[in-house]
Amino acid sequence: MPRIAGTEIPDNKPNRIALTYIYGIGPKFSMDICNELGLDPQQRAKELNEDQLAAIANLLEAKYVIEGALRRQVQQDIARLRDIRSYRGDRHRRGLPVRGQRTQTNARTRKGRKKTVAGKKSVKGMK
């Protein structure tokens, strides 16, 4: 498996797909990289030679924020929102959806498993 920017990219995938395995590189950026370096987006990653791998690594280092630096930047942004006590920071702190999604139903990914709350017990025979 070729290794670019500290990330293993799969051999048997086309270049345009294989580059998206790098955190911070999506489909658009992977196509931009292929076009800029003159790589065939359909060529398999295992067919890349050392010069091409080095060119990709140099371009990523020069032009894009990826992997650890990007993860750190995202965490710092979230920490800043928490520190300034913004609404979004509060939602991050509570583990609730941040971008305005509904929470009365759904939102289970952010909220976690259901926490069953005991209901009000009715007494039979009272009128």
Rank of each mutant, 00 (worst) to 15 (best):
P2K: 04
V117G: 00
G125N: 14
E50M: 12
M126I: 15
K111Y: 08
N12T: 01
A55D: 11
R93N: 13
A18N: 00
R80W: 10
R3P: 12
E47H: 07
S86W: 09
A54V: 14
G125M: 06
R94I: 03
N58M: 12
I4M: 05
R88M: 09
K114H: 08
A18H: 00
A18M: 02
M31S: 06
L48V: 03
P2R: 04
N35V: 05
R99E: 06
A18R: 02
Q104D: 10
L70A: 11
R71Q: 09
I33P: 03
I78A: 10
M31V: 05
R113V: 14
G26R: 02
I33T: 00
V117C: 04
Q76C: 13
R44F: 08
G68L: 07
L96Y: 05
I33K: 01
P41M: 06
R108G: 14
L39E: 04
G89E: 02
R110Q: 15
G68S: 13
Q101F: 05
R113T: 15
H92M: 01
L70S: 05
S122F: 11
D83C: 08
R113G: 15
R71N: 07
K111V: 12
R94Q: 11
I25C: 06
I4W: 08
A69G: 03
L70D: 09
L53D: 03
G112S: 06
Q76K: 04
S86M: 03
G112W: 05
L53N: 01
I25M: 01
P2V: 11
R72Q: 13
V123K: 13
T109F: 06
A62L: 08
P27S: 09
T103W: 00
I66K: 01
A107M: 10
G100P: 03
G112I: 14
R113F: 14
D11L: 05
R91W: 10
R102I: 13
Q52L: 09
A107T: 13
L96N: 05
A5N: 06
Q52N: 10
K127V: 14
R80E: 14
C34T: 06
P14E: 09
L81P: 04
M1N: 04
K28S: 14
Q76A: 15
V74N: 12
I25W: 02
T7N: 01
K28C: 11
I17R: 01
R94F: 11
G112K: 06
Q52T: 11
M1F: 04
D40M: 07
P2Y: 10
L60T: 01
G6K: 05
K46F: 12
I17Q: 10
Y23I: 09
Y64Q: 07
G119Y: 02
